[in-house]
């Protein structure tokens, strides 16, 4: 019923997300493979082609699993393998104070609060469990629709506004 992009869930995707331990394993594995392959890919493929392939792959895989909104700065492993951009308030440090008594979203009543799910799943995770307590920086809106994988490989997603870093470095 809801017309929110945030509330879309592909059939079967919740089954995967309720196994966050396996998902974080897949994440860690594919991250190290990509880090190994990327320097080679970068040398042989045109940058625009690589970007397109990456964006397409993310839209398909993360789109299916996480209803990825292509923010371009993925923090899934720090948020219980649950996409925070599915929160209609775009919280990166949730949940808000509007969660309903049944654990559903203030804005989309038929959708479970993604941050309630995120905290539950984070508690089940091993490698990255507990990272949900990290203070996440503001979203870089300029990265919208770009490839989060490429941004991570290039270190783009780790860049912070320089004012923000003044306290992080202390």
């Amino acid at each position: 019923m809801s017309s929110f992009a945030e509330s879309k869930r592909m059939p079967g995707s919740e089954w995967f997300k309720n196994r966050p331990r396996s998902l974080e394993g897949v994440y860690a594995g594919s991250k190290s493979v990509l880090q190994l392959l990327y320097p080679v890919l970068k040398r042989i493929l045109p940058a625009r082609f690589t970007e397109r392939v990456f964006v397409w792959s993310e839209e398909v895989t993360k789109g299916y699993l996480f209803n990825c909104q292509m923010c371009g700065q993925c923090i899934l492993h720090s948020t219980g393998m649950t996409c925070p951009m599915n929160c209609p308030k775009n919280l990166r440090n949730g949940p808000c104070g509007g969660v309903r008594q049944n654990g559903h979203c203030e804005v989309i009543p038929e959708m479970p609060c993604v941050w309630v799910q995120a905290w539950q799943r984070d508690a089940q995770m091993g490698r990255y469990g507990g990272e949900i307590q990290l203070l996440q920086p503001p979203v870089n809106r300029a990265l919208q629709n770009s490839s989060a994988w490429l941004n991570q490989l290039e270190g783009v997603d780790a860049q912070r506004p320089s004012g923000w870093s003044t306290i992080e470095l202390e």
Binding site: K89, L91, N93, P137, W164, I167
Partner: peptide
């Protein structure tokens, strides 16, 4: 709805402005 920041970004930014004497951009 804007929600460019969440409450924690807002808190930290106000703290940075007060303690570091800069805007988020570093200015």
């Amino acid at each position: 709805r804007v929600f460019d920041f969440d409450a924690l970004h807002l808190l930290r930014t106000a703290q940075i402005m007060r303690d570091q004497g800069v805007l988020l951009s570093g200015r």
